[in-house]
Write a protein that binds this DNA or RNA. Structure first.
Length: 485
RNA sequence: GGCGCGUUCGUCUAGCGGCCUAGGACGCCGGCCUCUCACGUCGGUAACACGGGUUCGAUUCCCGUACGCGCCA
């Protein structure tokens, strides 16, 4: 089995396109077939090599590998022209010399009569003399397909039997006057020559499929199987687009989503394994994938659920790999160069280990864990009111600092024992020491367990911040801060 | 405007005539765990668009209506 993903390189890899690619990929892998790429760059003006690269990069990032070199439509124009000519030969297509103005007039007239416009087909039966006359005028013809009366039907793996009366169809254009093929011609020729067995693409092409079916029949080629998958909509139920915020795969990558999470999530937009599984590896999805599990109705993209799923992936990721993925986000936030990043790597791994349950995206790490790298410049207002009010707090913090200074080794277990002992000697609850300490050292009321936190931060930093906070509280000049999150 | 496609909790979905008092997940709300915040865990909230048929029985099949989306203009 051979399937393809056929993006137009007029933008970055879009979430909707990525989902189509995922379905094609899963289908190919499931059946041991080939997953191919075709770049639909017939619109030379709007296509660019940088866009092509962005799309390939997006697919690579998602982990969707293709099996043969991509086919570029821009390099195949002569083939389309030859195929169009072939249909003219066969009498299944014809040259049409109507000008844009003539067509527009027909359209206006139809509208005035209150009718739906369809091309009249008046160039269908031009005599050789008439054609010659037009040619002498310098008119450049388009090639139109001659739609015969009848009913066109095909089976779609998502929608079932679909049929349409050919009377609804225009004599649609195959080749424009400048020799550029239309979508219908190019797609049919390419899918045939690439040996595509299953066309899995967006719902928006369903209405166009009868035209393509007619083309297959006119060429005498076997039809592929079709599966038209529902579109992905934005929260306003309109097709997902720029105004819904991030729509390209690259944007999600730079926000700190993991490719596994994105693939998992978009695979579940419009497809279900049939049971209650949601968190699935690529292999599990390949195993479970089936066209019959694709739903007919369009799905709304809900980033809140993607966030949740990303959080699940982050917290279950291999720690070393997670640190590797998170490192660039720290570097970006703190302005590290490559060397500095490399130096920080072991420390970052510890930080990530403490924060991985508290974060949804890689980009959250340096924000939530800012205090692992710089002294807090303010203290959560609510925490100050709660934990810095007791007059004994400065003294407690200093005592704790003194005790911790003697801690050896500076590890969570030792730190905990030290703190609890001190609390007991002071006749207070451990919590009365723990909360002010966390606030003193991190500026925050929430976060990782205090003892693990201290151990990672290191003795020097902890002791210094405790003393500094004690000083601030004693002088009554505690700078307050809003939560950065 | 014509044609096509679609319609189960706010969102993603399970359901393919009786198993449905409609299941799971996200979100939201609450309990537990706990040094806090998370994680985890337990519980709660919330849906078959509407109207006709077919059938002993419809979320499920058929037909309309409404609404949404798409394609062509």
């Amino acid at each position: 089995m051979r399937v393809r993903f056929a993006p137009s390189p007029t933008g970055y890899l879009h979430i909707g396109g990525a989902r189509t690619a995922v379905f094609n990929y899963l289908f190919a892998r499931k059946h041991g077939g080939k997953f191919l790429l075709r770049i639909e760059d017939t619109d030379l003006a709007r296509s660019g090599q940088d866009m092509v690269q962005a799309i390939l990069d997006g697919l690579t990032w998602l982990g969707l590998s293709w099996d043969e070199p991509p086919v570029y439509q821009s390099s195949r124009f002569p083939i389309y022209r030859a195929r169009a000519a072939e249909l003219v030969e066969k009498g299944r297509a014809y040259r049409c010399y109507c000008t844009r103005e003539e067509l527009e007039r027909e359209r206006q007239e139809a509208r005035q009569r209150g009718e739906g416009y369809r091309y009249s087909g008046r160039c269908r039966h031009l005599t050789a003399e008439q054609r010659a006359a037009y040619e002498r005028e310098g008119r450049k013809p388009v090639i139109r397909f001659a739609v015969e009366p009848g009913v066109t039907r095909f089976y779609d793996h998502v929608h079932g039997e679909v049929e349409i009366n050919n009377a609804q169809l225009d004599d649609f254009v195959l080749l424009r006057s400048d020799g550029v093929p239309t979508y219908h011609l190019a797609v049919v020729v390419d899918d045939h020559e690439m040996g595509i067995t299953h066309v899995i693409r967006g719902d928006d092409h369903l209405s166009n499929t009868p035209k393509q079916v007619l083309l297959y029949e006119a060429f005498g080629w076997p039809k592929p199987e079709f599966a038209h998958v529902p579109l992905i909509l934005g929260p306003d139920r309109k097709r997902l687009s720029k105004r819904h915020g991030a729509t390209s795969v690259g944007e999600y990558a730079s926000k700190g989503y993991l490719p596994e999470a994105v693939v998992n999530f978009i695979a579940l937009l419009g497809w279900s394994p049939g049971d209650d599984r949601e968190i699935m590896t690529l292999d599990e999805m390949i195993q479970a994938f089936d066209l019959s599990g694709i739903s007919k109705a369009s799905a709304i993209f809900d980033e809140a659920k993607l966030e949740w799923m990303n959080g699940v992936y982050i917290s279950s990721y291999d720690l070393a790999k997670l640190a590797e993925k998170a490192l660039p986000f720290f570097a970006r936030e703190f302005g590290w160069d490559e060397e500095e990043a490399k130096r920080q790597r072991p420390y970052v791994e510890k930080v990530v280990g403490l924060l991985k349950f508290r974060v949804k995206k890689l980009g959250d790490f340096p924000v939530v864990g800012r205090y692992f790298f710089t002294d807090p410049d303010g203290f959560e207002a609510e925490g100050v009111r709660k934990h810095f009010v007791d007059a004994d707090v400065p003294q407690w913090l200093e005592l704790l600092a003194a005790e911790l200074e003697r801690c050896e080794p500076f590890e969570a277990g030792v730190i905990e024992r030290t703190l609890r002992d001190l609390a007991q000697r002071l006749g207070i609850k451990a919590a009365q020491l723990i909360h002010p300490s966390r606030l003193a050292v991190t500026g925050r009321t929430g976060g990782p367990g205090l003892f693990e936190l201290f151990a990672v931060l290191g003795k020097g930093v902890v002791v210094r911040r405790l003393r500094r906070a004690a000083e601030l509280v004693r002088s009554g000049a505690v700078p307050e801060a809003e939560l950065a999150q």
